[in-house]
Design a protein around this nucleic acid. Structure first.
Lengths: 113, 113
DNA sequence: CTGATAGTTAGGCTTATGCCTAACAAATCA
DNA sequence: TGATTTGTTAGGCATAAGCCTAACTATCAG
């Protein structure tokens, strides 16, 4: 059932864009203002802010506004959500591999194929 | 630079859909034919096969056709690609947290606002 | 108060995504 | 051979995604 999770949808979709991954990577180095974040990209500011919106909606970042400056921060827990989904699948797969290995070992040599 | 990776785009986008995650989870249990994979979903077969196309393009799965049956398999290496990108970011972030902690400890008690 | 700076809102355009039906092809079974 | 099963191809439609410009608001510096 955990595959029908809107949270995972949002997180993975957010990660599926190079601009957004770059922003996230940047934010892992420390909090940054919107325009500083935007500077490296040649993209109109409203477009860029849309990416921030996607990241924020996914829970991967959050932001606060003080005066006219909005500062963005990573929220690493949300990264773990994605990471652990993947890890779970990988472990399922490895488990199955091991079962298969075990099964193969029950066969006489040369019996595979 | 690793944030401008088309491979990561494809993998994360593939993971950003519940149908595709479910398929992947299923395949982690073992290889399955297209129609067996499709059975749990009430979706026209061509639509479903499009999802398989996305997964295959991303490298998360591969498939072979024997007779009229196409069998699909996971490719767990590709899962690790995504997993390790995330792990890298997380570790960057934790590193920075530690640096910050260290910095805080250089301050006299009570000096942190 | 004026002008610059930091974001936001509104609206539009183009392409991609996710779904569908209908028709086809190829393998297998009776 | 004729019917069935297992996919595939073609084409269409609606919504979402990603980008843009123009115009606006709010804060801060002088």
């Amino acid at each position: 059932m955990p595959n029908k999770s809107a949270a995972l949808d949002d997180v993975f979709n957010a990660l599926g864009d190079p601009t957004r991954r770059a922003v996230l990577a940047r934010l892992c180095q420390g909090p940054t203002s919107v325009s500083d974040l935007a500077a490296p990209f040649r993209m109109a500011l409203p477009s860029f802010v849309q990416h921030l919106g996607v990241l924020e909606k996914s829970g991967l970042i959050y932001s606060t506004k003080k005066g006219r400056v909005r500062t963005c921060y990573v929220k690493a827990q949300q990264l773990s959500v994605a990471e652990s989904w993947i890890a779970t699948q990988r472990s399922l797969w490895e488990q199955r591999l091991n079962q298969f290995d075990a099964y193969v070992k029950t066969l006489k040599p040369g019996e595979t194929t």
